[in-house]
């Protein structure tokens, strides 16, 4: 498993970004960039090559689902693996994300092991 892939962590809550960053580091991913909302994430995605997106659902400006739709609609970015972080597994949310082409979803709070499983399952399918 390639742990050198560049992971983009998107969340408006700085502490939450740090949490995800710490968990990612625990499972061996060191190459991490952050964005504070969907709009910023999209900018980052357009300026550098990102291999994996971990985004929160609920954010101001551009929410996770809007980001997902924007990524899938962009010819160059469309294939980027996308893991959605949600607080509860609300069925309508999850289904909306799945229909929009998400690669996986994870429910807060999660452990490093669960995160690792999710990422590996997604990357294995690519």
């Amino acid at each position: 498993m390639d742990k050198n892939i560049k992971v983009l962590v998107v969340d408006d809550f700085a502490t939450m970004r740090k949490v995800v960053r710490n968990l990612l580091k625990q499972i061996g991913y060191e190459n991490i960039v952050e964005a504070e909302d969907g709009a910023m994430a999209l900018k980052t995605l357009k300026s550098q090559k990102i291999d994996f997106i971990v985004a929160d659902w609920n954010m101001p400006n551009m929410s996770g689902i809007e980001l997902l739709k924007a990524v899938r609609a962009d010819g160059k970015l469309a294939g980027t693996p996308f893991l959605m972080v949600t607080a509860e597994a609300l069925q309508e949310n999850v289904i909306e994300a799945v229909k929009a082409g998400v690669n996986g979803y994870i429910v807060k709070p999660f452990t490093a092991e669960v995160l690792n499983e999710k990422i590996e399952a997604i990357v294995a399918k690519l």
Partner: peptide, 17 residues
């Protein structure tokens, strides 16, 4: 509503961790 919802939501998320 969302603007009030979001702070609670974010706090809840991190507090969980």
């Amino acid at each position: 509503i969302n603007a009030v919802f979001r702070p609670f939501h974010s706090v809840k998320g991190v507090a969980g961790f």
